[in-house]
């Protein structure tokens, strides 16, 4: 479903971010992407999201290949990819329900469909009671749940999470991680980028990809 084939990425100012990285993520897989900050985790996620193009090599996601994909196809591909960030990236002037609905509105969904789906998504992340709350009225963990609900709005095949627990306390981290696990159990692949090795250690059953200075230095599936 996701294939990195000898991918390197060089940015004009910051230099080499990824160096000859190859791996594959299958449908419904759960996978940690670890490494120090600056190791290239975010670059991997941006390449999957087709926000950047590799300098060398090829990235394939759900049948689309970097370099060949057209702008309109990028939009269509992104509807199949959920994305959450450390800083949540919610619209502060909209309620939780409106933030989730936004992801459906921009893809042209009908109002009646949006209403039903938003209710279901907020229930799924445990925030049905706070649908009308604004981000400023929610805790960090709750804001991240809204972001996850938004990421799931278009029924993605993969959920990308870039340090999703970086701003959360231990309890909220646990809650968000459990949410990711249940999303994965329902069939959505999850790629979770984190430098929180404690979180990785506590969940040692999952695949781990480790990056160091842009190179893939460890893949738990190939070593086992």
């Amino acid at each position: 479903m996701i294939l990195f084939d000898h991918v390197s990425k060089e940015y004009p100012r910051s230099g080499l971010a990824l160096n000859d990285v190859s791996f594959q993520v299958r449908k419904g897989e759960f996978c940690f992407l670890t490494g120090h900050s600056g190791a290239g985790k975010s670059t991997v996620l941006r390449l999957i999201h087709m926000a950047d193009e590799p300098t060398r090599g090829e990235v394939r996601v759900s049948g689309y290949a970097s370099g060949k994909i057209r702008p309109r196809e990028i939009s269509m591909l992104r509807r199949k990819i959920g994305y959450v960030f450390q800083d949540f990236r919610l619209l502060l002037d909209r309620s939780a329900a409106e933030n989730v609905a936004f992801a459906l509105q921009v893809t042209g969904a009908r109002a009646a469909v949006i209403r039903v789906k938003v209710g279901r998504l907020l229930a799924q992340v445990g925030l049905a009671a706070k649908a009308e709350s604004y981000p400023a009225e929610l805790s960090g963990g709750e804001q991240q749940r809204v972001a996850v609900a938004r990421a799931l709005a278009n029924d993605p095949i993969v959920l990308l999470a870039d340090e999703p627990t970086g701003n959360l306390d231990e309890r909220a981290t646990r809650g968000i991680f459990d949410l990711f696990r249940s999303i994965n159990t329902a069939g959505t692949a999850v790629i979770l980028a984190t430098h929180d090795l404690e979180l990785v250690r506590q969940n040692s059953g999952y695949r781990v990809l480790e990056l160091d200075h842009g190179a893939l230095v460890y893949d738990s599936t190939s070593s086992s």
């Binding site: 309109r72 939009s75 269509m76 619209l91 936004f102 992801a103 921009v106 042209g108």
Partner: peptide
């Protein structure tokens, strides 16, 4: 700009 960034993130077309 935040709204536009999120539109892009969730797959709105450039036309939209």
């Amino acid at each position: 700009r935040d709204e536009i960034a999120i539109m892009r993130l969730v797959g709105a077309t450039d036309g939209f």
